[in-house]
Design a protein around this nucleic acid. Structure first.
Length: 895
RNA sequence: GCCCCGAUGGCGGAAUUGGUAGACGCGCCAGACUCAAAAUCUGGUAUUCGCAAGGAUGUGCAGGUUCGAUUCCUGUUCGGGGCACCA
């Protein structure tokens, strides 16, 4: 028994790369062993932290603030694996470092608790998502506590908690009640816009949804309530529009992209198709320029900024109108109704002779004389109207085909060229030649105008299209274009182009814009699309929206328009709580499960919106809630947000590069514009940790038939050796004949059992199949189906495995959890090993075997202070000059 | 397909500004201690030729810039992440 009288509180090991914190933060105490007893040390520390709330953070402090945040996890049923804590450990070390440097450090943790997997699990097992989510969070919390983080758990947020999503809904209403003033580049309350409409109509504030919409003050005054609200809807930041979703008839539900695999539903393998549905959107496109420009101010990696830039996808070009060339008058039906991919929901538009033109967007007006055809997106609104009768049935077949294709497939299958001729033509604005109009899946409705001018000699995709459909190609690049491959570089001169002849590409661009000024205009286009904000699901935030006379109102407005004398029994205040249900089956017509709960849907003053919000709703603003997590009057007190400001360091994976990070940035800007917070970028500095990958093991396997019984048996064999069994063979006194071919066989969880040389011995194989749930009685039978490769030094049979590095995930059965590591080696060893694996930003495979070295290091380190013979060897004497010299040399060397 | 990132011994990686490639750790080999084992300590360990001294080769591949390239440039291959409803 040794008495510890030292007063060391924090021991740091400082190296040039990382700072490791040793949990040894302890008061006077005794250690009952001279060995490095991590369980004892860490146990005491954690007890003390919890008891004394050591890491409680106050918003009242004279210290300088520092906000360090991890991307909060989705609490999945699989629990944390060793990959998750990598970033958490790094940020934890930095948080402790900053705290010791004298900062008031906000370092919270919470849970992104709404999501599809919980609902999916509920569908399969009948367990309510709230129950499983609670269970998972408890487990995550235990796991996190094991690792010894310095979070202030009193600030934990959970997106599925009504106290939290009350404010998610409140922010949604702010966005619903706002519009974007382009003249000032600012989000403003919708009332400001209404005032403009009353005074002058919309002449100074063109409609973002429809640039043709124009009305004056009198027209506005004469609009019905519905017309007014419909018009305002086209301006709101949170608005309703139409979008396509994957629809699965057999399951009667809408599927996420994730749930559609190889063109069929993941569950059940049923056919799926695109369906157009009324949806909520966030008008993020209005913020495109600001989102792009303020990237420059952020301390993010260039790669990450580049990804956001590409996602926003700004391109300068020109929008050009092409007249439709009707073959004869009868082919243009004055009253034809537009039929699109889905005609149920689309507002019917009438095409008349007053709108007989098609707009295209191009970044290369210099190539205008090389236009040989035009391609429309299959969703293009004029498509049905311009297609000649002769081509109608081909077109319908083609559109049917496109419905089954994902957007990804449509743009990435460059080898497979598909399309359909409409039979119609447009007139080239300069040459007045007839240009054939085609339709093809590679043109997307959501980008530009949903139509392109095909310039085969200058664009690879157009070139392939022209070659495939044998459309004659005009060469405007002279010898630069060989006839084999499009010339897409931006150097050289333009030929064969009339007035543009002999000009450089740049000069021709300017000249062409001038020549086309009557039929076109300069235009900046963004690839960024408005963000779909509806999900036909149960486990998400309900919308605080009520339909009254078919018009959507925010529940804050409903409360106002209810006549005073008409006392409503419905509670029209926030939050709109997610009702408890027993069933998670989809509602009718692709609606979410909420549509089935008629009691909830029908209120005294209209029906509720039955969609729920998407996963990113809660995560778009959670960093604000940590600042003032228990406030029931406001999402976070202005004093708190003014004190903590931006997140100084945000740590998380690159997989969120565009989704979450972009949406958060937009919400922050909107809240800033509306005066709710004092800063307009959420995350000042961003650190992307790499992924820790898992190692999966495989053997070969093949089927063979026993000669007498014709019984089909699966054999496992060392990797690459199946080929040796092409001839009939004898195994355990029975004759077998191998069926042709062999397959890779995934050995689930074999990473726990395979030796360093990739061998799985008979003993460890037995352990593996028992671990995987085999019964003792089956073991011998199963072991008999393994064709051993040879014997180890210890005279044991083994089979040779092949390994692959892949994502660590439950579905791949290669997960290593931190719990086992922490139990065996302690949190300090685990933390240090994770930091020791390599650069934080890089992906690297997990290998439990390497952990021994780090553990030995900590043991050695412990012995520096605790001698076997003398016991505790530190004291409070002043260091000698020699000792100081060594200390400072070491610091200098390592820092 | 497009965008971003990466590739160095048996393994994770180091070399941060273009200047001795392989720090540190794992694994492996040998030795010390021990009746023995564990733990601990010491030494060796890129490949290849050589008894040795020593030589040659070597940072995915092919080129280029440079007195000099793991580092900069071009092309290419492979792996990872994202591509708008997984989170």
């Amino acid at each position: 028994m040794y008495k510890f009288e030292g007063n060391i509180n924090n021991i740091f090991i400082i190296s040039s790369k990382s700072i490791f914190f040793i949990l040894t933060q302890t008061e006077e105490g005794t250690f009952n062993t001279m060995e490095y007893n991590f369980a004892d040390i860490e146990g005491r520390a954690k007890e003390k932290w919890a008891k004394e709330k050591v890491y409680k953070v106050s918003n009242e402090s004279n210290k300088e603030k520092f906000y360090i945040l991890d991307m909060f996890p989705y609490p999945s049923g699989a629990g944390l694996h060793v990959g998750h804590p990598l970033g958490y450990i790094a940020s934890d070390i930095y948080a402790r470092y900053k705290r010791l440097k004298g900062y008031n450090v906000l370092h919270p943790m919470g849970f992104d608790a709404f999501g599809l997997p919980a609902e999916q699990y509920a569908l399969e097992t009948g367990q309510h998502p709230a129950v499983t989510t609670e269970k998972n969070i408890k487990r995550y919390r235990e796991q996190l506590d094991h690792i010894g983080f310095c979070y202030d758990w009193d600030r934990q947020v959970q997106t599925s908690d009504p106290k939290y999503y009350k404010w998610t809904q409140w922010i949604f209403l702010q966005l619903f009640n706002s519009w974007y003033d382009r003249t000032e580049n600012k989000t403003k309350p919708i009332n400001v816009l209404i005032d403009f409409f009353i005074k002058e109509g919309n002449k100074n504030h063109p409609c973002p949804d429809n640039d043709l919409l124009l009305f004056d003050d009198t027209t506005w005054a004469n609009y019905t309530e519905k017309e007014k609200r419909d018009t305002l809807m086209q301006y709101r930041i949170a608005y309703q529009g139409y979008a396509e979703v994957w629809w699965c008839q057999n399951l009667g539900t809408v599927l996420a992209n994730d749930e559609v695999v190889n063109g069929v539903s993941e569950r059940g393998g049923f056919p799926v198709e695109k369906k157009n549905m009324r949806q909520w959107f966030l008008r993020i496109t209005e913020y495109a320029e600001r989102l792009l420009n303020s990237l420059d101010k952020l301390e993010w990696s260039e790669a990450m900024k580049e990804m956001q830039r590409n996602w926003i996808g700004k391109s300068n070009g020109m929008e050009i109108k092409f007249q439709i060339a009707f073959n004869n008058e009868t082919e243009f039906d004055e009253n034809i109704q537009i039929e699109n991919l889905d005609n149920n929901n689309i507002e019917k538009k009438i095409v008349t002779k007053n709108t007989p033109e098609i707009k295209v967007f191009t970044t290369r007006p210099d190539t205008i004389m090389g236009v040989d055809f035009m391609v429309l997106a299959p969703e293009h609104e004029l498509l049905a109207a311009i297609t000649t009768n002769e081509h109608k049935s081909d077109l319908n077949d083609y559109i049917q085909y496109v419905k089954s294709r994902s957007e990804r497939e449509r743009i990435s299958d460059v080898k497979q060229i598909t399309g359909c001729f409409t039979g119609n033509y447009v007139i080239h604005p300069l040459t007045h030649k007839k240009i054939p109009v085609w339709v093809s899946e590679y043109v997307l409705a959501g980008y530009g105008t949903g139509a392109i001018m095909g310039v085969p000699c200058g664009d690879d995709r157009d070139h392939a299209f022209a070659k495939f459909f044998k459309i004659p190609i005009t060469n405007i690049f002279g010898i630069k274009y060989t006839g084999e491959k499009a010339y897409s570089e931006k150097t050289g001169t333009i030929n064969n182009s009339g007035i543009l002849d002999g000009m450089s590409i740049q000069e021709a661009g300017i000249a062409a814009m001038k020549a086309l000024s009557k039929v076109g205009q300069k235009k900046t286009n963004y690839k960024l699309r408005d963000a779909g904000f509806s999900r036909q699901r149960y486990w998400g935030e309900p919308f605080p929206i009520i339909y009254h006379d078919g018009i959507p109102y925010g529940i804050d407005e409903i409360a106002e328009i209810i006549p005073q004398n008409n006392k409503s029994e419905t509670d029209f205040s926030l939050p709109v709580e997610l009702p408890m249900v027993k069933q998670y089956k989809p509602g009718p017509d692709g609606q979410g499960p909420l549509a089935n709960i008629t009691d909830w849907v029908n209120t005294d003053y209209g029906t509720r919106e039955t969609n729920t919000m998407p996963g990113y709703a809660g995560s778009s603003w959670y960093f604000l809630r940590y600042m003032d997590p228990n406030n029931s009057h406001v999402f976070a007190d202005r004093k708190a947000t003014d004190y903590w400001q931006q997140v100084d360091l945000y740590v998380g994976g690159t997989e969120h590069a565009v989704g979450h990070l972009l949406y958060s940035r937009m919400w922050t800007k909107a809240l800033y514009d509306l005066g709710h917070i004092g800063f307009e970028e959420p995350f000042k500095k961003l650190l992307n940790q790499g992924m820790i990958q898992g190692k999966s093991f495989f053997t070969d396997s093949f089927y063979a038939f026993e000669e007498e019984t014709n019984e089909k048996v699966l054999f496992l064999i060392s990797h690459g050796r199946a080929i040796n069994f092409e001839k009939p063979f004898v195994w355990n006194d029975k004759k077998y004949k191998k069926s042709p071919g062999s397959n890779e066989f995934r050995l689930r969880n074999a990473h726990f059992f395979v030796d360093a040389k990739g061998r799985l011995t008979k003993t460890s194989f037995k352990d593996l199949i028992l671990f995987e749930g085999a019964k003792e009685s089956e073991v011998d039978y199963l072991l008999n189906l393994v064709i051993w490769n040879g014997k180890t030094e210890d005279d044991e049979w083994y089979i040779l495995c092949n390994s692959e590095i892949e994502k660590m995930s439950k579905s791949k059965h290669n997960v290593v959890t931190p719990d086992d590591i922490v139990n065996d080696f302690g949190a300090d060893t685990f933390r240090m090993y994770e930091m020791f694996l390599g650069p934080i930003e890089m992906s690297k495979p997990w290998d439990t075997k390497g952990i021994e070295g780090v553990h030995r290091f900590l043991k050695k380190f412990w012995r520096q202070f605790f001698d076997e013979q003398k016991g505790w060897v530190i004291n409070n004497e002043a260091p000698t000059n020699e000792e100081l010299r060594v200390l400072h040399k070491t610091i200098k060397k390592n820092w």
